[in-house]
Each structure stands twice: as structure tokens, then as C-alpha cells.
Write a protein that binds this DNA or RNA. Sequence first.
DNA 1: GGTGCGATCGCCT
DNA 2: GGCGATCGCACCG
Length: 282
Amino acid sequence: MTTRKRNKPSLPESDSDKTECEAAKRLEQCQSDMNTVGHNDLLHHHLSPYFSMRDSPRLTYSFFNQPCVELAKAFLGKVLVRKLTDGTELRGKIVETEAYLGGEDKASHSAGGKRTERNTAMFMKPGTIYVYPIYGIYLCMNISSQGEGAAVLLRSLEPLSGQDVMRGLRAAKRKPGAKSLKDKELCNGPSKLCQALDIRRSFDRRDLATDVEVWLEMDPEKEAIVDAGEVVMAPRIGVDSHREWATKPLRFYLRGHPCVSVLNKDAERRMDSQSDTERTVC
DNA sequence: GGTGCGATCGCCT
DNA sequence: GGCGATCGCACCG
């Protein structure tokens, strides 16, 4: 048996514990301003004195325009940004997604190519946000991808900034007096992240590539390049009734990340034995 | 830590 | 009328 060391991602301190330097503030303001004007990566590069193309550019249509499974994996490590009306920016790194393929995928809202008032956003251009209510009380957020009726469900985020605001938003739906949520508990589920980032039903059918209140960025620290060996592929959550489609490995998460909603130890063990076999063959 | 259960209502058949 | 891409909480070990 092979033992391996894995770098366990650790969460940053709550932003109330940190002192931001002026440069960082200027950078954030600059990025914020840029996002309100409509632009492309090149424009970013030329206009900003504070960052180059490799520093947190907003992701555009060309990123979203890829097949569903590839987009679901590509989302890992990217940063979802939500700008509130008072200017506060809430940021979270995507650590878990699910692919819903549309058409043939029986577990998808768009199974059989069915297009309804609710799922219209799934059929809109890649990058369109699909927000739908579930269990009467919660919301889930998807992003449409390439492919008819295909979309990616965002399942969990690692909070990067605005944690205290997120805590307040999450507390609004909890019992008064319930104990304060840890950072890793703020966005570790599809409906939790909607609450924490104040994603509302009105965000349905908006364009993540151009909207001024919500967008996606590269991970500023490591350009969001995720080692494929650290991505766990597992069956999706909550789709057991859909027979063979319930078992397909269409959920993707960063291995060892504390913000993932549900771990799948079997899938992780399978990854290990597979990579051990590959090493033996080599 | 893991498990079981009830809440709650829009959407679809 | 039935069900669901969930969650929080009580309970157990």
C-alpha cells in the first residue's frame, strides 16, 4: 500500500482578523471598476496598473463555452464573486461541482430535452445562470455550458473574503441563538452558498460573463490550475432515484478540501488503487 | 463523527 | 397530488 502526503488546504483567517494592505484595496477597487464597464482580458491587461492578465481576470464567454463535464472540472479553483448593492464583494473559491448533461441525463431538469419555464436558462447560452428553488425553502445555482440543456451545479465554495457578511446572511435563516458558523460551514452546500452570497431567484437567466452583481475570476494565487490527480470524481448527490444516471461519476471535488459538502471515501480509495496500478505498470 | 427525520412549496404530471 | 440536484437539528455512540 502506498502512503502519500497530501497538502490539506487550510482556510484563511476571517477577514475581520486581517489587515488588508492598501495595494490590495486598490487592486480590488480597480477590479471592481473594471467589472462594471464590459471588457475583455486584453482590456484588463492594458488598462490596469495593478495586475496583468494572469491576475484575477474576469472569465468570459469563451471559458463557459465548453462541454459540461470539462466546464464542471474547470470551475474548480475559480473564484465566484458577488458584489452587493453597498459595494461589498463576497468571494469564494469553487471546490465542488456537478455536471448535468441535459437530454440523455435522466437526473437533469432538462432530461429528454424538455424545456419548461423553470429550466429555460439551461438552454440559454453558456455562462447563463440557472437558479431554481428546491424543497420550497432553498435555492440552487447552476451555470449553463455547451450542449443543449446542459449545466453545472455549484455545490460548494471556500470563502475567501466577506466571511462575516456571509455569516450574517446565513444566520438569517437559522434559529436565533444557534452557534456561529465556522468559515468552512458558510458555503459547503449548494443552497448554503446561495444564502451566503445572497444569490436570489432574480439571478435566474443572467449572464455570468457580463453581469455587474456576480461574476467569475481566475484564482489570483495559483491561476486556478488544478492537478487532475487532486480532483475526485464521484456520483452526484441526491439523484438516487434516477437509476444508472445516479451512479455516473459526474460530481467533482478538490480532494482533502474542508469545504466539500459530502466526501466519497470509496471514490477516493478507487483513485488511489488506480494510480498505484498505473505506477506499477510504468 | 454519523444517521434519521421533518420542514415546506413550486413545479410538473 | 406527489416529489425534490437540501438543510438543520436531535439523537446516538
